[in-house]
Nucleic acid binder design. Structure first.
Lengths: 203, 203
DNA sequence: ATGTAGTTTAACCAAACGGTCAAAATTAAA
DNA sequence: TTTAATTTTGACCGTTTGGTTAAACTACAT
């Protein structure tokens, strides 16, 4: 039954996603994934031949989700300032729903850089810059944004949004004594980050 | 011979550091560490009883190094602005020499938050804030820095410094097409980051 | 009812793993 | 030089690991 196929395959995929995100590629156990999916271990190998293939399937979907979240910003027909606000709001909201994604992705990329190479190589940063330049030529001049400073700015924006989730384990301990809740801090960050970056790039 | 002891124990520790940083706790193999140290596997267990103990020794030293690098900033008798410049210069320089530390630490903390709890709990953030307030009362008012915005600011500074190293695998691929070298980018970042943050906090 | 193709399972396997042990080698003390 | 203590080793052990296999089960077409 094809429906049942999909159900089982999806059940496996979802279980694998959970376990891989929590334990990482090396820490995850096929038996653990099978238990989470409520099936026999051999069935994992029936649908996905090896642990490596199963992991790749999970990894590529998650990485895709992550990078797609960066894209819609460029399509919106709004000012650069609004785009920055839009990005932090949308991206942090997405990460609030998937708080373990950053840590998972960063770790796996460090342990196997080749794996993500194919995915990222598709992104044409030059074309992306030209799109941005066409849309916001005047604004880019108004701010201190050039082709040269673009990587610094972009990586800083990503850092401010992503890092707190990757370092959550540290921040939560530090916040404890200050009676700060991580979720409150993150909610507050959507606006703080936008204000911070916008002020930083103003001439 | 006590000297030889230290030599062997250190050799093991250094080999373990290398392997753990590269492969992580789960991915590291005791045999691999023994090979790197040029000794028998049983000797690992003679000096460090278990893999867990060996890892803890390595982890605590590395984590200690990392957090100590944040400290000296508070001791320097210089302006707040100079402290920010000082921090980025020193911290990024340190990470340039130990580029894999961020990824390693963040990953292990995510996989075992309890491990770092003891280390971080020693840091009294409130006391730290009071020290900063005593040293820079006027400057803090001049900028938009309050006890409430402090966590946002501090985590942003850490993010801008640490994130590029944790995400190096991604950035390097993106930079390839733009003919940007990661080391050049990182060298440039020492000043860019300081300028960026200082401008962001100015009223 | 029967055959057939796809699905699921329990039992099993070889390799790799962390860890142990008794003996050999080295060093220090007598 | 002999003795005792420490260090290093190869060989070994029980367990866990990813992966296989042959048989059982299911759904469906004939």
């Amino acid at each position: 039954m094809t429906e049942n196929d999909k159900q089982t395959e999806e059940k496996i995929f979802e279980a694998a996603t959970d376990v891989f995100i929590e334990k990482g590629m090396d820490g995850a156990r096929m038996q653990d994934i099978a238990d989470h999916a409520g099936i026999n271990k051999a069935l994992l190998h029936y649908y996905y031949r090896t642990k490596d293939r199963l992991f790749n399937a999970v990894f590529e979907k998650i990485a895709g989700q992550m990078f797609k979240k960066f894209a819609p910003v460029f399509d919106e027909n709004i000012s650069l300032e609004e785009k920055i606000r839009f990005f932090f709001k949308e991206h942090i909201t997405f990460l609030q729903k998937n708080p373990r994604l950053p840590g998972f992705l960063l770790n796996e990329i460090n342990h196997n850089p080749a794996r993500i190479k194919k995915l990222i190589q598709q992104i044409d940063v030059n074309k992306l810059w030209m799109t941005l330049e066409a849309q916001h030529k005047d604004e880019l001049k108004k701010y201190n944004i050039t082709r040269e400073t673009m990587p610094q700015l972009m990586s800083s924006i990503a850092a401010i949004s992503v890092f707190p989730f990757a370092a959550r384990g540290i921040l939560e301990v530090l916040f404890e004594k200050m009676n700060i809740n991580f979720n409150d801090y993150m909610e507050e960050r959507k606006e703080y980050a936008a204000d911070f970056v916008i002020k930083a790039i103003k001439k």
